[in-house]
């Protein structure tokens, strides 16, 4: 189960399937709670916009991480896929960073 080839084994034992199912259900619970928390946050009305943005994006990031790690098996990802996503993340960050920076760096 903890071996990194978990998803690739053709036949999984009933035990490991049960464990996987439990993890999926746990993620589902986190996602449900996260959604409720996000909406609740909206009605709290924080003092500053940046607080709202940070909390909302933090919850979204946690939810996304759960989906990626468990539903998409990334917690057991093969090296080539981790590398691919690592570089994709860098290029995305560069794009986002420079797009936003360019708005603030226009003189005048």
């Amino acid at each position: 189960m903890t071996k990194c080839t978990m998803t690739n084994e053709t036949h999984l034992s009933a035990d490991s399937l049960r464990a996987i199912t439990q993890r999926f259900l746990a993620v589902f619970a986190v996602l449900m709670i996260g959604t409720v928390a996000t909406v609740a946050m909206y009605y709290v009305h924080f003092e500053h916009t940046w607080q709202t943005v940070s909390v909302a994006l933090l919850i979204a990031a946690i939810k996304a991480a759960c989906v990626a790690a468990i539903f998409m098996h990334l917690s057991h990802a093969e090296r080539s896929i981790s590398l691919l996503l690592f570089f994709t993340a860098i290029f995305f960050a560069a794009m986002l960073g420079f797009l936003v920076y360019s708005i603030y760096s226009i003189p005048g």
């Binding site: 290029f91 560069a94 420079f98 920076y101 360019s102 760096s105 226009i106 003189p107």
Partner: peptide, 17 residues
Amino acid sequence: MIVWAHHMYVTGMGVGI
């Protein structure tokens, strides 16, 4: 992947960038 804005020096996007 991180050289693209050298096509944009004359857009006035600022010296830092």
